[in-house]
């Protein structure tokens, strides 16, 4: 038996690509959750509301210091006991989204902290309403600055999607495992799965790096 069977590799490629679509879907939906929720966390933390501030801090620290896999199991096994049953796909999106929201919130925070104090003072001087200060002055300056960092997290999320095979989501690696178990040939499926990740995430990270350089130059 050859170490690498090209015919077999081409046979399984369509199935793997189809599973890759699921991986990308979860990444995109998870990113939406992470980017929005992270922003909410960052703004709420900035408002320094008593109690809520401490609760949020604790939540962020716990989520950041514990494995995503355990959090996914938590959503998958604990929530149904409280009457909330989510499909594995949704658990994946929500789990990844919340986990990465705690990271993106730190990124937004760094971006917000980098806004010169004069901008805030000018807003006060113009007596802009609170909402306008955020949507019209602070965020439009803070968010573009941190786009590269956010982009890096989206790429990280993409690479963490295979964790979800533990709860039965059929993404690329799970598909590779299933294909391999049919023929007892694992070399081709896992190698192709790895290459697919590299093929997408490497150009993406190059893009982010270019964005970073453009930001640095501007």
């Amino acid at each position: 038996m050859p170490l690498w069977d090209w015919n077999y590799a081409f046979d399984i490629l369509p199935d793997l690509l189809l599973a890759l679509v699921t991986t990308i879907e979860i990444t995109v939906l998870g990113s939406v959750v992470a980017l929005l929720l992270g922003l909410v966390f960052a703004v709420l933390r900035r408002l320094h509301i008593p109690v809520l501030d401490q609760v949020l801090w604790a939540f962020v620290e716990v989520v950041r210091s514990t494995p995503l896999l355990v959090q996914v199991f938590f959503l998958f096994f604990v929530l149904p006991q409280f009457g909330i049953t989510l499909s594995a796909f949704v658990v994946g999106v929500v789990g990844l989204g919340i986990h990465y929201a705690t990271y993106t919130s730190e990124v937004y925070r760094a971006g917000i902290d980098a806004i010169p104090k004069g901008q805030w003072e000018a807003c006060t001087a113009l007596s802009l309403p609170r909402l306008r200060v955020w949507t019209g002055v602070i965020l439009p300056q803070a968010v573009p600055r941190v786009l590269p960092a956010l982009g890096n997290y989206v790429i990280s999320m993409f690479k963490e999607v295979p964790l979800l095979l533990a709860i039965g989501v059929v993404e690329v690696v799970n598909e590779a495992r299933e294909l391999g178990s049919l023929t007892f040939r694992y070399t081709e499926p896992y190698t192709i799965a790895g290459l697919l990740f590299l093929l997408l995430s490497y150009p993406a990270s190059m893009l982010v790096r270019r964005l970073e350089r453009r930001r640095a130059a501007a």
């Binding site: 999607v161 295979p162 690696v173 694992y186 896992y190 790895g194």
Partner: peptide
Amino acid sequence: VEGFRGTSEVVQLFWIYFVLPVL
């Protein structure tokens, strides 16, 4: 560096655990 940063850790794990023995 780019090879390991660019792929998923789970894939790397499965590759070393399941594929390497075959090779």
